[in-house]
Design a protein around this nucleic acid. Structure first.
Lengths: 265, 265
DNA sequence: GTAATAGTGTCTCTAAGACACTATTGG
DNA sequence: CCAATAGTGTCTTAGAGACACTATTAC
């Protein structure tokens, strides 16, 4: 077999022979769970929210913007020197001022016609932002352009492009990942109380044993991926949400693995 | 807020302002499980295999081909009028002559430098081909270009582009999906015997209770997503792999859902 | 005291794990 | 009758589910 150098091969290669996409974007469905305080010594009500931006009517050069005025997922064009994942990190840091967030790819949207500007491929991610992080961001930025919505509200909005479909898929993946990974920890503070975990799970899952206090509080302490917080050998407790003291927990490094073949039915 | 028509907006839009990718490809990791007959009245040994193609040294125009001579995942450039998923279906049908296969997206590979021809984005899928389908294909085509490899062999080959990484990821996803979905059914015939299912699971998973016959044969019959095959109310049995008769099963439509929060540990 | 959160006590019942045992049949 | 596949019998123990009950403390 003959050998050719890369240079020789590239000399013959002509990318214009193939149709190339007109753009490659990275979109991010940013989820957070807001705690709504409903009184002293009561665990707050937790609500899953999605961050959307309102697309400007005009772009920076004063020309009318595609899908301007509609609500959309944050995101933008990926530069050739970065991956879509890096672009998502960058764009999210620009938006929220935070790095070190949980971001995960979950799908690609590449159907011709999804964007009138041409053949534009979107690499979709979801991100989890703990509420305290988002709170400080919202204060810093002008709130007119960025807003958090309940999932009910989201699907009543007029959304740009095919973002409705992307959001539906993101929600599906976040539910799935909440069930089979320790994704919940990304919604919680470092140290949390069992009712915090219960609240996070209930925003996304709908299983009876999670809702029933007696069952949840009995099972949860023995979950292998959380552990009681201790200080000098003493159990660390808090009375943040109750009059009595509640045990604080944290996630450990255990990575659970589930299978339908050894599950209970 | 002013309103603009799509035409007016597109008049101002100039895609050359943005860097666009040089190509968009769809790659497919085609898995099958080969049954190796080891004697009459014995369940065959099952081995997970991956289908790879050997890249031609020269392209159709006689020019040297990029990464020619190396083994690679089947795939190719996506046309603007199709999605990467449709392209994967099309290319797989061209290769194997079969449609109606299980194909699933699992990742995007978009790092600059992964393909020397430029900024080429690969949308990666895995596919499951039952062995009988693949057997008929291999007879039809010339076998020099297409071959099935053990996973051990695969990772000893000199693979094109970043296909090693893509295959490692595909294997991870197929293991995961085998655990939490009824993916196994795509490796099995319509009607199968418990030892067939056990064999498929063992090619990918490594859990003790699957290997222990007594435990597997007791648990498996009560899995909610498979059911005994009956003919006119009589249980349908086979002596394909044994001297005695073994019950035939099929998958039903039940979609199991597992969660780390109600699993056993 | 009352009300609320955050649990525990106790019972029942199902299922997992372990391992011995049976049923069937080709050679 | 032997060997091999394809199971079943039976015992023990762990854990899920149900529901009543307790502990603590702000007001």
């Amino acid at each position: 077999m003959e050998k050719y150098s890369s240079e020789e091969i590239l000399k013959h290669y002509d990318s214009s022979k193939y149709c190339t996409p007109d753009g490659y974007t990275s979109d991010i469905a940013v989820f957070t769970i807001i705690s709504e305080e409903i009184g002293p010594h009561k665990p707050p009500k937790k609500i899953l929210k999605l961050m959307l931006i309102k697309r400007a009517s005009l772009d920076q050069e004063g020309n009318p913007n595609m899908e301007g005025g509609k609500w959309a997922l944050p995101g933008g064009f990926v530069q050739p020197d970065e991956t879509a994942y890096v672009a998502a990190l960058r764009e999210l840091e620009e938006e929220t001022g935070v790095n070190d967030l949980k971001i995960k790819h979950f799908g690609v949207y590449d159907k011709m016609g999804r964007d009138q500007r041409g053949w534009i491929i979107s690499n979709a991610h979801y991100a989890i932002v703990p509420e305290n992080v988002l709170a400080q961001r919202r204060a810093a930025d002008d709130a007119a352009e960025v807003e958090l919505f309940d999932m009910d509200e989201v699907f009543r909005l007029d959304l740009a492009f095919d973002h409705r479909k992307i959001i539906e898929d993101a929600l599906w993946y976040i539910r799935k990942d909440m069930s089979i990974t320790t994704l919940a920890k990304n919604f919680l503070a470092e140290e949390f109380v069992l009712s915090d975990l219960q609240g996070v799970l209930m925003t996304v899952l709908d299983e009876p044993w999670i809702k029933l206090d007696a069952q949840f509080f009995r099972k949860a302490p023995s979950l292998p991926f959380i552990e009681k917080v201790t200080v000098n050998g003493d159990l660390k407790k808090t009375n943040r949400w109750s009059k009595g003291n509640a045990q604080l927990y944290r996630f450990n490094d255990y990575e659970p693995f589930v299978s339908i073949y050894n599950a209970k039915y």
